[in-house]
Simulated assay, not measured.
Amino acid sequence: MNPTWSYLLTLVGATGLLVAGRAQRAGWLIGFLAQGLWAAYAVATKQPGFLISAFIYAYVYALNYRAWTTKQPALTSEKSDT
């Protein structure tokens, strides 16, 4: 398999985290869309573990995107003071 995959997956994932870390909800969307690349990688390399992780990560990215978009509280173990 061409090593370009690993560079592309790393670049897209790191970009999503960087954007999310700068308090921009688009970062979560980038991460969510990156899971399509992970799913393609999983199928191309016949590694079902990556496919399972892509679905799990997509779910978490979707939850975080929704929290940022609708002002929902993020998943956290801390209790709110309000």
Rank of each mutant, 00 (worst) to 15 (best):
A14P: 07
Y41F: 06
A44H: 00
A62M: 03
A67G: 15
G31T: 10
A58P: 00
L51E: 02
A14K: 11
L11D: 11
S80I: 12
V12Q: 05
T45S: 11
S53F: 13
T15Q: 09
Y65G: 07
V12S: 05
Y7Q: 09
T69H: 13
A67C: 06
Q47A: 13
S77L: 15
Y41T: 10
T70E: 12
E78P: 03
W28K: 07
I52W: 13
W38V: 05
Y61N: 15
Q35H: 04
N64Q: 08
S6R: 09
P3S: 00
Q35R: 03
R25M: 09
G31R: 02
Y59S: 15
Y57M: 07
G36F: 01
S80L: 12
P3T: 05
I52D: 02
S80Q: 13
L9T: 01
W5M: 08
L9V: 11
A23D: 11
G27T: 02
T45K: 14
R25Y: 02
A62C: 14
T10Y: 01
T69K: 07
P48E: 09
A20Y: 00
A26F: 06
V60F: 12
R25P: 07
I56K: 05
V12L: 09
L37D: 04
A67N: 12
L9W: 01
L18D: 02
G36T: 04
L8T: 13
T70V: 10
Q35P: 07
T4Q: 13
T70L: 15
Y61E: 13
G31A: 03
A54V: 00
K71T: 15
W28R: 10
L8F: 06
A54K: 03
F50C: 05
A14N: 11
T82V: 14
I56V: 10
L8G: 09
A39H: 00
R22T: 08
E78K: 02
A34Y: 05
W38H: 10
F32W: 07
E78T: 03
N64E: 03
W28S: 14
V12H: 08
T45Q: 13
W68Y: 03
A39G: 09
L11N: 00
Y65P: 05
G21T: 10
Y7L: 04
L8S: 11
V43P: 08
Y59I: 15
T15H: 01
Q72A: 06
A74C: 11
S53A: 15
K71G: 15
Y57E: 06
A44I: 01
T82M: 08
A23F: 08
A26P: 07
Q47T: 14
W68H: 09
I52E: 11
A14I: 15
L51K: 03
S77N: 06
P3I: 00
S53K: 12
F55T: 10
Y41G: 09
Q47S: 15
R25T: 05
R25I: 09
R66K: 15
A34H: 02
S80W: 07
W38D: 04
V19M: 00
A44Q: 08
Q24K: 12
Q47D: 15
L29M: 05
K71E: 14
T4W: 11
Q72V: 01
A23S: 09
S6F: 14
T4L: 14
G13S: 12
K46Q: 14
A58C: 03
A44L: 06
Y7C: 08
P73K: 11
T15F: 06
G31F: 03
R25A: 08
A58G: 06
L29T: 02
Y61T: 11
K79L: 12
Y59W: 14
R22K: 09
G31E: 05
W68N: 10
K46L: 01
G49C: 04
